[in-house]
Design a protein around this nucleic acid. Structure first.
Lengths: 116, 116
DNA sequence: CTGTTGTTCAACCATATGGTTGATAATAGC
DNA sequence: GCTATTATCAACCATATGGTTGAACAACAG
């Protein structure tokens, strides 16, 4: 059940990251806290549309919101990004392992040739 | 234009990763090359359905296919995973920076208290 | 040749997604 | 109080997604 939860989290995080508008928003948030309209500004899109993107990021746990008066300030919460990265890192390890295995295989072949 | 291409690639890769069925398939592929039906086996889903997932992974460049007779062998191509990880790693750096900044801020506050 | 296996394709369905507009609510400034 | 600003909500639209079934096709086994 914990696994399912983690899986659902990864679903949401990766889905949130699969849109370039949202990735750009995260890029801006990496510079610091930001209002929703400031986040929306760079895009030729209605504010309501941008607001939906912010909600997707929020639902994925990538963004947190602080309401001050009529302004909603958003900031990055990188913990979930770290989870996603950890998932990917597992495959990086596999990838390196395979490269290492290939390399030592080639080296062994090389030695054989020299000997023969 | 190169940026747009990279962006489209990330779109596809993150979208491919946003489904737990596809992540599980990648998990199996990490163990080694695998036929489509072997990939489909663990899921209570039609073969045609599973085949669609494989195509999504392939379109994202995460999986490569080798056809031998009637069997389609798939294998992981981790290069695109590495790209996605590189994107995430940028934010990890930001995250660490922020933590470091916070830590030194707290340390400074602490020093002040001691002095005062 | 026949039958079975591995796989894709096409058509279809329900639901999700990314976007719009117009209305609504809350707050700040005059 | 009136108006402009910040943001959400609700309804709607077109398209994408994840799944199904049934048919097709290629290849191996008898």
């Amino acid at each position: 059940m914990v696994e399912q939860q983690r899986s659902a989290t990864l679903d949401a995080v990766f889905h949130a990251l699969s849109d370039s508008t949202r990735r750009a928003m995260l890029g801006k948030l990496a510079e610091g806290e930001c209002s929703v309209s400031a986040l929306a500004a760079p895009f030729s899109m209605s504010l309501a549309g941008a607001s939906k993107h912010v909600k997707v990021l929020e639902a994925a746990g990538l963004v947190r919101r602080r309401v001050a008066g009529r302004i909603h300030y958003c900031r990055l919460d990188a913990a979930r990004l770290a989870e996603a990265e950890a998932w990917l890192r597992h495959y990086e390890r596999f990838w390196n392992t395979r490269l290492d295995a290939l390399e030592s295989l080639l080296r062994a072949e090389d030695e054989k040739k020299k000997e023969g």
